[in-house]
Design a protein around this nucleic acid. Structure first.
Length: 285
DNA sequence: AATTGCCCCAACCGCGTGCGC
DNA sequence: TGCGCACGCGGTTGGGGCAAT
């Protein structure tokens, strides 16, 4: 049994709004405001045969003052891209950083134009080749979901465009061989609810930092293990957040956004089981 | 000129969350 | 504390417009 409808579906108009409907709604809200109001009751008050939710959406996305439509600037593009790659499709949060833009507008813009624009900017084949090569013998990359892979590709491309240090990712010659990842990870104290340690057996020139480690050389030297090798439901935030030249930080996507000194975040959900993700290992002294 | 297919975007739908009772 | 209601959000849909055939 589904949820009860928010309005009488049989008696509400659907589809595009007429200028008359817009005028009624605008006039009412400009006079009475929206605070403390009741969107469900509003259409009845002003004689509109519309669902309250539809009224709210129409006001927020089209009628309210200072709304901008189309004509996204390069700066706005960059903000959207960076936020999307860091926090994903949290459109309302992204919209909050762009005055005059609505979440719906940004969502549509991303899905129809910006994503393609971004992919076209860098030769897609370059990235695909690298990932394909690694896929041939990398079980962890094979385990990525399509959306995670998409975000990964965008992440690599954008970072390469904006931050020279990420040219590392575009130069496979710098990448070390990836050992069988499952063998590199052990977990201690995972089941007692207390502090958990993630231990990486030392690779040739790299190890994985732990919370509290001091990062001396901030150049990434190896990719980290697949999160899918951890236990279902475990949070592995601490594995992914690194502050340049500082202490390992327990961070998530939001923290990374707030603090630009964090120059890598996983970009994916850190909850094991909700999605696959990866992180880099770093040279730690 | 007619048809088809694709793109774009406004609007809808359903779920999660928070708040008041 | 639990329940119901309204709000807000993100995913999805559908129709109008336009380009290609």
């Amino acid at each position: 049994m589904g949820r009860a409808p928010c309005c009488d579906k049989a008696n509400v108009k659907k589809g595009p709004w007429s200028p008359e409907e817009d005028a009624k709604l605008k006039a009412y809200i400009e006079k009475h405001g929206t605070r403390g109001g009741n969107w469900i009751a509003l259409p009845h008050k002003i004689g509109l045969k519309r669902c309250g939710k539809s009224c709210r959406l129409r006001w927020l996305n089209y009628l309210r003052p200072n709304i901008k439509h189309g004509g996204f600037s390069e700066e706005e593009d960059n903000i959207i891209c960076n936020l999307y790659l860091s926090i994903g499709s949290r459109w309302s949060i992204i919209a909050a950083q762009l005055p005059g833009r609505t979440d719906n507008d940004i969502k549509n813009y991303w899905n129809t134009k910006l994503k393609k624009k971004l992919l076209a900017r860098h030769k897609q084949s370059d990235i695909n080749t690298k990932l394909s090569d690694r896929n041939n013998n990398n079980q962890f990359l094979q385990g990525l979901t399509n959306s995670a892979m998409e975000r990964l590709q965008l992440h690599l491309q954008l970072q390469a465009l904006q931050n020279p240090i990420f040219s590392f990712y575009n130069n496979p010659g710098l990448w070390p061989n990836i050992l069988p990842l499952q063998q590199k990870v052990t977990i201690q104290g995972a089941s007692n609810g207390g502090t958990r340690n993630i231990v990486m057996e030392p690779a040739a020139a790299a190890t994985t930092p732990l919370t509290g480690d001091t990062l001396v050389d901030s150049k990434p030297v190896a990719m980290g293990p697949p999160v899918s090798s951890f236990r279902q439901g475990e949070v592995v935030d601490e594995f992914f957040g690194v502050q340049e030249g500082g202490q390992m930080a327990e961070v998530d996507g939001f923290d990374c956004l707030k603090d630009n000194t964090v120059w890598w975040s996983n970009g994916f959900d850190a909850k094991v089981g909700s999605s696959n993700c990866w992180g880099p290992a770093f040279s730690v002294v």
